[in-house]
Design a binder for these strands. Structure first.
Lengths: 328, 328
DNA sequence: GTGTGGGAGAGAAACGTTTCGCCAAAGGGG
DNA sequence: CCCCTTTGGCGAAACGTTTCTCTCCCACAC
């Protein structure tokens, strides 16, 4: 049988209220503290967080919904956030929505039913209606990597990120630049696409031709097919920007199957580790993923402590450009 | 205010016991069922799992401890397991021990304190003593990818995996084969090393020279340095087996920095996706990671349902060999 | 007609905490 | 020396479920 306050009461003669105070940082006299500590170790006592959660209306868990788990971006987010939240006493319940909006809604309900104190989400698209069950029950929600109206968000400056890539490429003399980006259904892709259009116009005075920036399937395959399509154009780009990590991988695979002489300059996204491995070594827009995770965690903790403004908060972080080898 | 059974009682005139029965699959008359359903939707009722957990002594959460989160092996494990467990109503609390035994012990205590119903662990080493708090409280533990005495385990047949690689290589005429493997501190590495030694002896009649199979740092860097060291030997191997994914990556990086003419045949581990990307395209020992995850999930659910034998269970899965391009 | 058994429901007691209201003693300022 | 506040502590009532024990009722077999 697992020990409870009652066992400690039996051993110490103190009341449950005093024991509770001890475990919650209240005022307890030194001798009584020692008594409780002795009893607790003798009984191998472990506080029952479920009972505590019932009374105090806090489960001390945070739900995290990811659009996919098999991406280094998301695993870094989870790893850092989990660490920070655990430090603060919160458990992290993870759910993979597999980029499926319906699954995402299910999962959110699941988490609300699990009485999580807050929810962090990397949403599959821009539709925020699935958050209703959380809102109804005043469960704070923080969106990561997506700007959601009326919701706290932690994002990166996608336009500036792309602009820095374009600046590098135009500086190196490129005038025809292609973009591998996904459809406009997610905030992130929309911003990167808009950032591309604006930056190209800014630098070259011309809007990029539409066939240079059609949307691709957000996947390695999409990047592969997209790069091949770009190079088959009658006036192919001399440089290509990949709007995320999957496109970068796919484009690199495509390049590897081509002769080296036809390689365009490539600017990719994310994942430093792989940069060492793949050829050509691309210039990379690197996101401050760990900082993103920590900001999200702090925002959650702030909301849980009841602090923070009434309106929703948006935190924007900047990327850095890691210049590669054969890309300019 | 969030609705409770009492609100449903007020609306239906039924007792709490009956309402509870309804939510737990007991016998409730049709009309009363409808009454409850109506009241529940009208009140937007959501069952409070914390209260339920207190009374029924089940938190409906499972803790998962990973030695690292940034590995495709582990993310696949988590993703599949989470999906299966959620299907069964369990939330998955994830913790990253970052390959640190002390952190792992902390995290286990943290999870036990969170009253998880079971724990799944990919342990950092062979020391099982950190599991004591779980054992003391009869929290079932399932180890993944490690054989732990006295603990349910789901593993792959590491010896057979390596043997299949050696068979392929010796069949192709290789007689001097190197191994990139980590130190003997984890079960997995020990098995793969032993499998290598046995298979080489089996096939060539000779034990492999010790300098062909010294331990490396388990990391991409270790694979990189290890491969270079092997090729600098006075009698270098004509083929190299990498005992895990990191070694495979590191060795491939090293190969890419060498002239293609000096490439040895390479057999690596895991990650199909990357196999498309890297050159030379290695032969890969592929583990049934999803099956591993599902077996682990089923084992957990079985233990949670009270079924299963008294002794600890070991489930062993087989790998397949995915023959690459330039590896034979 | 009389047991018997099970279905359906009710009341009340858990489950292990936190918290509310109350009290006694100690400390401090006038 | 008295009043007021603070400190440490106590008992009891929550928190929202599940579960134990009872009762009623009806069908069924004998």
């Amino acid at each position: 049988m697992v020990a409870t306050y009652k066992d400690i009461r039996r051993m110490t003669g103190l009341s449950l209220a005093t024991i509770s105070k001890y475990y919650n940082g209240g005022n307890v006299l030194g001798p009584n503290r020692e008594l409780i500590e002795k009893a607790a170790t003798a009984l191998d006592y472990q506080l029952n967080n479920v009972a505590r959660g019932l009374r105090s209306r806090r489960s001390m868990t945070v739900g995290v919904i990811l659009d996919e788990l098999d991406s280094s971006f998301n695993t870094t987010i989870v790893s850092r956030m989990e660490e920070r939240l655990r430090e603060a006493g919160y458990g992290t319940i993870i759910c993979d929505s597999r980029k499926d909006a319906e699954a995402q809604a299910d999962v959110l309900r699941f988490l609300v039913g699990k009485m999580v104190d807050a929810i962090v989400v990397v949403p599959v698209d821009d539709d925020t209606s699935f958050l209703a069950p959380a809102r109804d029950r005043d469960v704070p929600v923080v969106a990561v990597d997506r700007l959601m109206p009326g919701t706290d968000s932690v994002i990166i400056d996608n336009r500036a990120a792309i602009a820095s890539a374009i600046q590098l490429l135009t500086h190196a003399g490129h005038t025809t630049i292609g973009l591998l980006a996904g459809p406009d259904t997610t905030y992130t892709m929309r911003e990167r696409r808009a950032g591309f259009r604006d930056a190209v116009q800014d630098r070259t005075g011309l809007l990029p031709r539409s066939e240079l920036m059609t949307p691709e399937d957000v996947s390695i395959e999409g990047g592969y097919a997209g790069l091949r399509r770009l190079l088959r154009l009658s006036a192919p780009p001399t440089a290509v920007v990949c709007a995320n990590y999957g496109f970068t991988l796919g484009a690199t695979i495509a390049l590897n199957e081509l002769g080296q002489e036809s390689w365009p300059a490539l600017v990719g996204f994310d994942n430093l580790e792989l940069a060492r491995l793949i050829r050509p070594r691309p210039t990379l827009v690197t996101q401050p993923i760990e900082a993103l995770a920590l900001e999200a965690a702090e925002l959650v903790l702030q909301r849980l402590s009841g602090a923070g403004p009434d309106e929703s908060v948006t935190i924007t972080l900047e990327t850095t450009l890691l210049v590669g080898h054969e890309s300019t």
